[in-house]
């Protein structure tokens, strides 16, 4: 990552002013800090205890000095407060013409739904040079949507909407982090913001969500990645957070309550849309997140076809 020593490269309309404020406070802090250290070092050396050294002398308090070290810092912090406050208002209020995308955070992935109805997972596509407002909510616990390059962050809450806005200034791919602790997959709840020029974005949007021509298993393979199943289910037989898909179809699965069930299409469907209905033995502590109710019938069939192929 490039950028200054302290901050990554900014890429939104507000980032440069936020950076200026950061650097202002930072330099003021460095000057104050150096002042403190120099004063300590000087006094420590000058008045070190040594044989034959002078006796400690009483010091009369000096009103001017005292007033100045109360008033100067107060003025400084008030300047900083005022600056931070004005910027904060700008950050909080999205321009009226903003392009809106709905964001849904769930353990541990991000879904983005565009006004056309197209949905992407862990990839947010937006145009540059146009304000974008994200309306966000969570399917389960708290999450937080953070794009360092845009200097924006906002908590995402269950059963409540929160919003954040930015206007990207260049075409690139930017990292998204979840910054509110949300359990085991918190560190992998990553996504990217992909910015397009206005024309490219229209083109992307027109093609997004169109998957009629893709054969089911192939679509399933794409969904396996996009929907983040890959984070918990492997295809090579190793067990990570969830059971492997290798050899799953047709086998007899032992459930948490001791009963058994043969893995068929119905069981798979239920496992995806209502994972808590039947929990596989050994996984009761961290069951599968219940965030997949939004999948379409075709997508479900595709996933099932895909799992069926993993023998």
């Amino acid at each position: 990552m490039t950028g200054s020593f302290w901050l990554p490269d900014g890429a939104s309309t507000l980032s440069s002013e936020i950076d200026s404020l950061f650097h202002f406070v930072n330099w003021a802090s460095i000057i104050l800090f150096v002042g403190v250290v120099v004063a300590i070092a000087y006094l420590a050396y000058r008045y070190r205890r040594r044989p034959g050294g002078p006796a400690p002398m009483r010091v009369k308090p000096n009103k001017m000095v005292e007033i100045s070290w109360v008033v100067l810092p107060t003025i400084l912090v008030l300047i900083v407060f005022n600056w931070g406050f004005r910027l904060f208002v700008e950050q909080s209020v999205a321009p009226p013409n903003a392009y809106e995308v709905y964001v849904r955070g769930a353990m541990w992935k991000w879904d983005f739904e565009y006004p056309t109805g197209a949905v992407t997972t862990n990839e947010l596509h937006v145009p540059v040079d146009r304000p974008v407002r994200l309306v966000m909510s969570s399917a389960d616990v708290l999450h937080s949507f953070f794009v360092p390059a845009f200097r924006v962050k906002q908590d995402v809450l269950p059963k409540r909407y929160s919003a954040v806005w930015f206007e990207a200034t260049r075409v690139d791919t930017f990292q998204v982090f979840c910054t509110e602790y949300c359990g085991m997959g918190h560190s992998v709840m990553l996504a990217s913001v992909i910015t397009h020029s206005q024309g490219d974005f229209e083109a992307w949007l027109a093609s997004a969500g169109v998957d009629e021509d893709t054969p089911l298993p192939e679509l399933g393979a794409q969904l396996y990645q996009q929907q983040a199943c890959i984070g918990c289910h492997t295809l090579d037989g190793t067990e990570i957070i969830g059971p492997t898909f290798a050899g799953l179809y047709g086998k007899t699965e032992t459930l948490d309550d001791g009963s058994t069930v043969v893995v068929d299409d119905d069981y798979l469907r239920e496992s995806i849309v209502d994972p808590n209905a039947k929990i596989v033995q050994g996984y009761a502590n961290v069951p599968m997140p219940a965030g997949y109710t939004g999948l379409s019938e075709r997508q479900l069939s595709a996933l099932i076809a895909f799992i069926r192929e993993q023998q």
Partner: peptide
């Protein structure tokens, strides 16, 4: 600092 904390929080 309000505006900066948005970036630094968490």
């Amino acid at each position: 600092v309000l505006a900066v904390d948005i970036h630094l929080h968490d």
